[in-house]
Design a protein around this nucleic acid. Structure first.
Lengths: 329, 329
DNA sequence: TTGTATGCGTTATCAA
DNA sequence: TTGATAACGCATACAA
């Protein structure tokens, strides 16, 4: 059923039907009613593809995300999809993984689909490869990156001061008497590296030497988190607190301590980052740095909508993280 | 940059460029090379919207999901997106919530977008409203529903025998000496109701009367799960086991028992359904009925691809659930 | 091997 | 208030 079909049945031209469909003025009330009835009767549904072609707007946005299965990522995707949906935009969600080539491929897909805007979820997209891909293919559409920044005229960033946040974590733990701390770095994203930076600076303020700090690296899985905590305990049996760069491995670490009958937080305090659902599920409940991912995603959607509708916004917006204390500290 | 632009620069016609772009035969090797170079040089990217219009195929599929934030839903969406992406299809993921009108709206959106196929995630879409919406708008495209079935010529279903699965849970628990069991029903989806049915039948086999069974209802949240378990303990202090229709509330229940120093599974055994990530995060780890959501989603994607590419498949495919024992039973 | 013409379903411009 | 016509970018049948 196209506007031509409807037009033929109604005995009018296609443009008249189009006007009715789009609620344009300048149509006699009588014909409008008649056509509206026909539209209803034949269950007419406008072809968005054709609209997109002539309007040069797909009313779709792209959401690039390393892996939507991470609890904090999925929340972001959910809220963005919901918010954009309210404004008539569909979301094309692409899981890219962490490798450059797949991220670039995903940008190409969005380019072919002629999305009207893009949201990059996570600082992993703050990299040269993505920057170049955006420059070549998507330099004309607004882009928002959460938890990162790309120096491109069409890209805006929503950031969280995770560096400072983790520094506060160090302060809080030492204030509670946990002085011998370790930090566990997840993937090498700019965001994670800045968390590590915060740890280093926090410890230096307490008089520790940079070289002597207990810095570790560990992938974002339960299994790796478990092995990580075991290793820390082996290498530093006197450890008094561990800050993990994300929640999932921290959750496993808690379990290690529990299995070994090491008091949490009595003997060893544990913290995560992301303030995800996992924090309330493990035992004891995990204290975590709330890096405001929810607010960040809503901000990102808002900024993208602003750009899409011609409203101005600053290039960078900064949110402040805060510690959510639970039972593990 | 369109094929016309490239054609003009190359001094050929647009159809020649189109043929090169689509790797069609019947082009002199020399011109092909020349155009390929130009395509590369000018960073040509075919407009999928225009292609979709002429090909009458969007190469997009729709994924309808009540709420992608549920751990088991997001896994499904992830695997479907990945699998379809490999075959050149983009996924339009829409969160519909549980109300009929929003589900119907989502179907309309997919209709307007002229998706080539649809996957409905979860038995919540097995309802009259969705059925009618599909009939009116999407009767021409293949649809696959996971964990449910709709009697429509273009709809195929992938099902899991959760009824039988929960019946086995009852058997297992009673075999371990937990005889006084309660069941907690999440939302009233067909899937959840069949789990409850399995519980009832399992208990009846053990000689219980249907009327005396301890049946409860509880939304899928940590808070509600906590209150639920408290209520069960209050009303039935002699309870020996609880089967929750999904994992999240079960996780909270475990915490209640732990807080009250009630041994799990010594005094009270707890089970969930979905075998989600949550099971490994809580303490003690949660035994859960694996309803094979991962395999189901891959099957759904495979069936949809088969339909899209003209291969036949049975209308229903049944998978069998199995219990994954952890520490809570 | 290549080009011309047409159509996909819309919206928009201009004329009536 | 309405209609004819031309785009939008591409693929394809047919002609050359």
């Amino acid at each position: 059923m196209t506007i031509y079909d409807i037009a033929r049945i109604a005995g009018v031209s296609a443009s008249t039907v189009s006007r009715v469909v789009n609620n344009k003025p300048g149509i006699k009330e009588e014909t409008r009613k008649q056509i509206l009835a026909l539209l209803e009767q034949y269950d007419y549904s406008p072809n968005e593809t054709a609209r997109g072609l002539v309007n040069k707007a797909s009313r779709m946005i792209g959401i690039l995300i390393a892996d939507i299965r991470y609890a904090h990522h999925v929340d972001i995707a959910y809220y963005i999809e919901e918010e954009m949906g309210k404004h008539g935009y569909c979301s094309l969600i692409l899981n890219t993984g962490l490798t450059d080539d797949k991220k670039v491929d995903a940008v190409k897909v969005l380019e072919q689909r002629r999305v009207d805007g893009v949201i990059l979820v996570g600082s992993t997209f703050q990299c040269e490869a993505v920057k170049r891909a955006l420059e070549s293919g998507l330099s004309k559409v607004p882009v928002v990156i959460t938890n990162g920044y790309l120096d491109l005229p069409n890209v805006k960033g929503v950031l969280v001061d995770e560096r400072e946040g983790v520094e506060h974590c160090v302060e809080m733990l030492t204030a509670k008497g946990h002085e011998k701390l370790a930090f566990v770095l997840p993937n090498h994203t700019p965001s994670n590296l800045s968390k590590q930076q915060g740890f280093i600076q926090g410890m230096e303020k307490k008089g520790w030497k940079r070289e002597g700090l207990w810095l570790y690296e560990c992938p974002t899985t339960l299994e790796d988190g478990y092995a990580m905590m075991e290793r820390i305990l082996e290498e530093h049996p006197d450890v008094e607190g561990v800050i993990f760069g994300e929640d999932l491995s921290a959750v496993s670490a808690i379990r290690v301590l529990h299995d070994r009958k090491i008091q949490v937080p009595g003997q060893v305090a544990v913290m995560g980052v992301d303030n995800s659902k996992y924090c309330d599920i493990c035992y004891p409940k995990l204290t975590s740095l709330n890096n405001r991912l929810l607010e960040m995603s809503l901000e990102a959607a808002r900024i993208l909508l602003d750009s899409l509708e011609g409203r101005e916004n600053p290039d960078k917006i900064m949110l402040f993280s805060r510690i959510v204390e639970r039972e593990s500290t």
